[in-house]
Design a protein around this nucleic acid. Sequence first.
DNA 1: AAAAAAC
Length: 494
Amino acid sequence: MVRIYLRNRMTKFSDLKLGPKVQKAIDEAGYTTPTPIQAEAIPAALEGRDVLGIAQTGTGKTASFTLPMITQLARGRAKARMPRSLVLAPTRELAAQVAENFDTYAKHVKLTKALLIGGVSFKEQDQLIDRGVDVLIATPGRLLDHFERGKLLLSDVKIMVVDEADRMLDMGFIPDIERIFSLVPFTRQTLFFSATMAAEIERITNTFLSNPKRVEVARQATASETIEQGVVLFRGSRKDRQASEKRKLLRALVDAEGDRLTNAIIFCNRKSDVDIVAKSLKKYGYDAAPIHGDLDQSQRTRTLDGFRAGDLRFLVASDVAARGLDVPAVSHVFNFDVPSHSEDYVHRIGRTGRAGRDGKAIMICVPSDEANLQDVEKLLEKEVPRLENPLASGVSETSVDDGGAAEEGRKPRRSRRKPETVDAAPATKPQAEVEVAAEDTPAEEAPVAERVDDTPRASDRGPRRGSRRDSSVVGMGDHMPSFIEKSFEERLAG
DNA sequence: AAAAAAC
């Protein structure tokens, strides 16, 4: 550890013998010192050796293969339909991210590339391939699809990269990966990256890598170091109300963070819940948008770009966004559900507290998630601190409804799941119902409509500064019943 | 039990 650290401190990018044009791009990007994995992997890759990198995101893994690749590919030219290198990534977003990395560091080098991912038309991808590409970046499914159409020849691939291999394993891509390995020349160079070395990954590397340089990077500061964690144990007042009450709790937790919250990712276990939570937050005036695999690729891209640019404050996500995505500077991660794979917890909260910044990760745990919480704590080897439910004292947890947030607008393509009972109720105005909650009256009996204007409102809710792009917000908008805020003040004071 | 990825 110490040795690597010292060595890393002494090594500069300029010591690594990268091509002058690559070096220029690095200088312009403002980087001088490589990360440990870059310092170790780049020299080996430049020598033409296979590399087995065991590292997580945030370690500079992507540049550890793009930089030597650009250097090596700077000479020579691709023939039509015969890419000279191939990068495989498990998700479309990750593939797109790798492509951006090439754009950044190959800007002074004449290098052609194509991004082959699903969800977009074949036509443009075909045209690029026909012209010949130096770098092909792809998700496995779409790559094989192109190959089977006979549009693509892999016999000139000199460098092959497999990124996030353990994720590929989780997603059942290993047979595809093996097939692709069988389609590229035996003499290629292979750069292979995985966050962990599961037995199956070990087997693949033994089969397809040749005397690799093994580069292992200590896990980034584990969860505990820079990320403040907490979990709220929560049970709905009634089973059929738990879902909407949980969303109310989420809003309260968000609000309680005040100005400390600049932006956040909210993870849900199910795509349907991603939609419901995003819709609900939007309805209550929060600047939120969903991302998961059932949404159009164009929408996924737009949402992610907006979030990166700071135009979007809350990203409600499935685990499509848990790993690998480079989203700089997220102040908070909320786990609306406890992830059922405990490793995913580490990946999810790893979206915050990056690059030495402080981060906060807050989770909600309902009774049925308690077994998962135990698994998470077993993995962390420590207890996640319990947080008080900000709504617990003095305020009834009953009767908060999103007004059928989930029922409005289009449902995701494949989601035929029946929404929860509460949300299926006729879409009444949320402010009325929240006000009902303030009065501690069961929603069903409340004369909602006429009470709307009497709703006590806090003029300023503090935390939100994002734009509400949806001008048709039906919900509370800027208004927040004062009881919620009051209970916080009381809580903070006490 | 679910998410991701191919049409």
